[in-house]
Design a protein around this nucleic acid. Structure first.
Lengths: 145, 145
DNA sequence: CGTGTAAGGAATTCTGACACG
DNA sequence: CGTGTAAGGAATTCTGACACG
């Protein structure tokens, strides 16, 4: 099974993913006019919106928009929904960081595909593996060679 | 710190992310004419391309395109690059599955944000945590309460 | 085979104004 | 405050053809 390449690691972090307002609107269920209004209030911001050109949003903005929408649906006002989304955004950054840094390599364990997530902090003699077995993932410690 | 909500779990899997050809081209560095040609050869396929309407690609297609491009840059022919990309695509599915299933909840460990990835297969008394500490991630076993 | 380009039309997005509330 | 809509123009994407090789 192939090793994770540098290109693919970059993809996990997806720092460069960007998409237009139509796609963001369709994905999130938030209308284009809502998105433009939120932008005018500086709640969200496109990567570049240089004078009449099409807006481009990054992946983290998608997450933010979806979360804001969730709180709006729960009955909160827009400013409150935005404030609440900020806590979750921190969390997303963490998840992304883990994605980038912890997927060390791809291997096979007993014929099942597995991700080597690297050594334990307290016991570097063991690596943590996430193994896909019978359609679900399990976590297992495996000693280094 | 907030719990991971159902909405956010869905985002990790990002099954619904879709973007246009301009965005895919800019992200991947593959030209629009290349993407249309690859489609004509059935190497990639948009979600929907109903008669003159704009193409929409899903996230896994981005990954596939980037990987194909990598092998093209390495000097392989297009058919070979496509074949090689398929092995990596399997891997991406695994990574995605782990993302969806293994991020159980968000917590704080000694003041640092951490992701609870759930119990070990062999010793369910311990959960595996990915902790962001001083800007990097570490893995630690923590006993269940 | 694999990609680029010019061409004309179609789909998408832009801004600023206005409506409703 | 927060969102929707009609309007006209601009940016983007569409297809099919052709060039190069």
């Amino acid at each position: 099974m192939p090793k994770i390449t540098k290109e693919m690691k970059g993809l996990f972090g997806k720092p460069s993913i960007q998409l237009g307002i139509g796609d963001l609107s369709r994905i999130s269920g938030v209308s284009q006019s809502q998105l433009r209004y939120w932008e005018s209030k500086h709640y969200i911001s496109p990567i570049q919106s240089s004078a009449g050109k099409n807006r481009k949003y990054q992946l983290l903005t998608i997450v933010k928009v979806v979360i804001i929408k969730k709180f709006l649906d729960d009955g909160f006002t827009l400013p409150v929904a935005v404030r609440k989304s900020l806590e979750h955004k921190e969390m997303m950054d963490v998840v992304r960081k883990v994605n980038i840094e912890r997927f060390i390599s791809m291997e096979e364990i007993d014929g099942d595909p597995a991700i080597n997530m690297g050594p334990l902090e307290d016991d570097p003699g063991y690596n943590v593996f996430a193994i896909v077995k019978n359609g679900t993932t399990i976590l297992r410690l495996i000693p280094n060679k």
